[in-house]
């Protein structure tokens, strides 16, 4: 079957590369955004909220069109496909991440702050030793969930000319549609297995964290 397996793997690498870079950017920007979102300033709150809602309301496919085609149309700037994909998934990931971070902080009871301060901890000490560790624990399963969602959503990028694993699969199925009309089942099974190999360890980690959390809560 030619070098189809290698092609699937290289498609998988495209998927993983786009997801990982986007996830990394989302973690950093989302954390900052989350910190901003906990602000008590009403204007800041509304702006963040509007951003989040816009990102959520619009399908990622539309975002891909906007960044890959729309930006070129309006400004002449020409982003490559992968750059556009990373931008889109970062815009989305950062928004979702920001909301998760906000939620994780707001889920921490007020008395955790008060008793930290009562013990004489300075604010930096309080955040470092008490608040961040707890927020992180609330956050991790959700972040991993988000990461797996992002990995799966990268299948959309073929619309802007990127050949990721699912697209490679479609190409293989199509190339063999006359000789092997039933190839689809096997190709999709292989792709399913590849996604599984990436996402399953992530869900396992997430599950382990949740379990540990239940013990210490």
């Amino acid at each position: 079957m030619g070098n189809n397996f290698l092609r699937l793997l290289s498609g998988l690498w495209v998927t993983v590369r786009i997801s990982l870079i986007s996830i990394a950017f989302s973690l950093v920007l989302g954390t900052l955004l989350g910190a901003v979102m906990t602000s008590k300033n009403k204007v800041v709150k509304v702006i963040c909220r509007v951003y989040l809602e816009i990102v959520r309301i619009m399908p990622q496919l539309v975002w891909l069109f906007i960044v890959f085609f729309g930006v070129t149309r309006l400004t002449g700037a020409n982003f490559g496909g992968e750059t556009s994909a990373v931008i889109v998934f970062t815009i989305w990931g950062a928004a979702e991440m920001g909301d998760l971070v906000r939620g994780a902080f707001q889920a921490i009871p007020k008395h955790q702050f008060e008793s930290s301060l009562s013990l004489g901890l300075t604010k930096p000490q309080m955040y470092l030793n008490i608040i961040f560790p707890q927020a992180l624990r609330n956050l991790l399963p959700n972040v991993i969930n988000l990461a797996t969602r992002m990995i799966k959503t990268t299948a959309l990028v073929s619309i802007i000319g990127i050949t990721e694993v699912l697209k490679v699969g479609k190409q293989i199925i199509d190339a063999n549609r006359f000789e092997f009309p039933n190839a689809a089942i096997w190709v999709y099974a292989a792709i399913f297995f590849m996604y599984f190999l990436i996402c399953f360890p992530l869900s396992m980690i997430s599950r382990a964290i949740v379990k540990k959390q239940q013990r210490s809560e």
């Binding site: 955790q112 008060e114 008793s115």
Partner: peptide
Amino acid sequence: KIRQKIGMVFQSYDLFPH
């Protein structure tokens, strides 16, 4: 500084869960 000299225990259980 002052808070170090004042111990306080609240009604709500406020141990650090982690």
